[in-house]
Amino acid sequence: MIKLFSLKQQKKDEEGSARAGGSQKKASAAQLRITKDLNELNLPKTCSTEFPDPDDLLNFKLIICPDEGFYRGGRFVFSFKVGPNYPHEPPKVKCETSVYHPNIDLEGNVCLNILREDWKPVLTVNSIVYGLQYLFLEPNPEDPLNKEAADELQSNRRLFEQHVQRAMRGGYVGTSYFERCLK
């Protein structure tokens, strides 16, 4: 153990504590961590990011343009919001493009395990990017968020594929309208 305070220097210098006029605001741990995450972001060639304000690293968009699978040729935009409790809590991710997908609902909620129940502080923005990309390559009908789409994928793959194409070109699938999102 160290003896932190010797009784001789027991009084803290109160004058000194207010010295130098104001104080410099320090970067938060979340900020330090996201800077590291982004500087090491290694995007697959199908993905790109957009930062509306380059000084704000906590809010950005990820654009995925799958080059294979059901969603080839589409362009899907996700918004990322990194909160002050990152990486204890995952970023909030929403899909801003309307998409006919078993794991993404019409409000843009995404069912990806690492965005909720399986998030761990060791994961990074890169892990989420790969997770999202995987959703487009392998939609998972076992964990549906859009139940209609999931059921269809399981019962009639051809029909599902046609509906995905129709939605990406812009049009109705059932009663829901999808905006065109082809590149």
């Binding site: 970067a27 090491e40 990011t49 704000d56």
Partner: peptide, 25 residues
């Protein structure tokens, strides 16, 4: 190296090569 700073409590990105849109700006 990606370089940022905090000036008057505001974050500022000085240079970051790894993100294309930030690199350009």
């Amino acid at each position: 190296p990606g370089i940022t700073t905090v000036i008057n409590g505001r974050n500022k990105t000085l240079y970051m090569a790894s993100i294309k849109s930030i690199e350009e700006k």
